[in-house]
Design a protein around this nucleic acid. Structure first.
Lengths: 129, 129
DNA sequence: ATTGACTATTACGTAAAAGTCAATATTATA
DNA sequence: TATAATATTGACTTTTACGTAATAGTCAAT
C-alpha cells in the first residue's frame, strides 16, 4: 500500500481473487476505483466494499442482488411505494438467510457424524493413528 | 402417492423444482428412482435423498460435492489414507460452513439496519403508514 | 375418439461468473 | 537503458445447473 492506495494485485492477493474478478466487478458497476492514467487505484473504502461483495458472494447472492444492496446504501429510495417494496424484499431475504443458516447447522451436524464414523473405522483398522 | 411410490410431478410440486431438475439429478447419478416401463417411480428413500440434495443446493454445494457426500454415506472408504483425506475434507467443509454462517449472521444484522432506516424514512415522509 | 394430464428422450440454449489469452502499455529497478 | 514485473483492454472460452423446445408414448375421463 502506497500513498493510501492499494494496487489491484495487492487486493487480489489479500482476497484470493483474480484481477479479472475485480475488473468484472467494476464493469458490473459494483466498485469504482480511481485511476492514475489507466491504472486502477483502490482506496480503503473500495477495499471494504470488496470485502462486502465477497461476503455476499460467499452466501450465494448474485451480482445483481449485491449491486442492489450497495445501491440502497448509497441512496435509499425516497418514495413510499419503493420503501415498502424494499422492506418486503428485505423480509424475504431474511427468511431465506434464516433457512440457509438452518441448513448449515443441519449439515454441520451431519459432518460431525461423518467424522465420528471415520474415527470409528480408523480405530478399527489401524489401531494407533 | 400410490403403492408406496411418488410420481415425479408429485415431488416437483412438493419441492418446487421442475421435472427437468429431478431428471438432471438422475443423469448426474445423485438419485436412482425405480422404473415401471420408462416411468420413474420414487420411493420414500428417494424423496428423502432429494430433500438432502436440495438442502445442499441451498447452501451452495455443487452437484459434484453433493454427489461426493452421498457417496460417503453409501460406502465410506475402507482405506486409511482415504479415511484421513476424507476427514481433512470434512474439516475444511466445516470451516467453510462456519464462515458462511458468520457471513449470514453479519448480513442479517445489516438487513436489520436497512429495515430500521426504511422505517425511519417512512415515519418522516408519510406519518401514518 | 378425443382431450388433458403426465411422462419420456434428445438436443440445443442460456445466464452467471469468471478464466484464459493476446496484444499492448507502463513502471521499477538493477 | 535494458529488462523484468505489472498493468491495461478486448475477445473468446468455460463451467454449472438447469431451461426450453420438439416429438412422442400412456392412461383416464368425457
Amino acid at each position: 500500500m502506497v500513498d493510501g492506495y492499494y494496487s489491484i494485485t495487492e487486493l487480489t492477493r489479500e482476497f484470493g481473487v483474480s484481477t479479472r474478478t475485480l475488473r468484472f466487478y467494476e464493469d458490473e458497476g459494483l466498485i469504482h476505483p480511481e485511476r492514475r492514467g489507466r491504472t486502477r487505484l483502490f482506496r480503503a473504502a473500495d477495499r471494504r466494499l470488496i470485502m462486502e461483495i465477497l461476503r455476499g458472494r460467499r452466501i450465494g447472492f448474485t451480482i445483481a442482488e449485491i449491486r442492489e444492496i450497495i445501491q440502497v446504501y448509497k441512496e435509499p429510495p425516497g418514495e413510499i411505494g419503493q420503501l415498502k417494496l424494499l422492506m418486503k424484499r428485505v423480509d424475504e431475504k431474511r427468511d431465506e438467510l434464516r433457512q440457509k443458516r438452518k441448513d448449515i447447522d443441519d449439515t454441520l451436524n451431519e459432518l460431525d457424524n461423518v467424522e465420528e464414523a471415520c474415527l470409528g473405522r480408523l480405530a478399527d483398522i489401524g489401531v494407533g493413528t
